[in-house]
Amino acid sequence: MTRTDTFLARVAGWMLALLWVLPLLYAIWAAFHAPEFEAKFDLTAPLTLHNFSRAWEQAPFARYFLNTILLVTMILSVQLVLCTLAAFAFARLEFPGKNAAFALVLVQLMVTPDILLVENYKTIRALGLVDTIVAIGLPYFASGFAIFLLRQTFMTIPRELDEAARVEGCTLLGLLWRVYVPLGKPAMLAFGLVSVSHHWNNFLWPLIITNSVETRPLTVGLSLFSTTDSGTDWALIMAATLMTSAPLLLGFLLFQRQFVQSFMRAGIK
């Protein structure tokens, strides 16, 4: 490649990167300026934190944060434990009905979300769990998606490692803990990220199944600002969005350190 070529490639790369982050830049712009600047990109426009304080006052966000953190932690930990066990069974054990069971688990991914609402509401009510945090998480304790992902990962682990561990007298749990969990770690990290953001942002089910401040997650608080008869307040929505996704973004930053580090190590080895 000639110099101009690399230069052009770089410029194109940066243009794409700019397009990529444009939505975020816009969100930040709108959140830190008074509402009248939401459509006017005046660089001299004064910065303000007023939108954040307005958003904070309109809903009990502190409580919503707590609920959301409880919720995603609960879901992720249960998912990781249950799905690792199941994925191991699918990847490494032979038993009659295995394919059928795997198909059933996968079908979970293919159920239209809309049909779940009414039936699951009935089930949760029968369990006496309406308006609890557990009710929001319970249907997601099984993740067909995680099982599928971990199965794919576990299948790539050389069987020799398995046998070596067994020869050393490892129990099943020991084997999982010493071989499968460490080798599946990148996939688990990636899944963790996906699961946390999915449930952090999940809206409809939590909205329907909960009624009170004590149980509701952030997204419900965020939806308070959506379009009403009096018009959409973009600055407020963007401030609330940044506020509610900030912990998640921070989590991402910490996460990608981990993620890239383990990746670098893999490269050096």
Partner: peptide
């Protein structure tokens, strides 16, 4: 045994509504 929790939850919250 390993699959049981998964299958129960999947059945109640996905297959039954489907």
């Amino acid at each position: 045994l390993l699959l049981a929790p998964q299958l129960v939850v999947t059945f109640i919250f996905f297959l039954w509504p489907a």
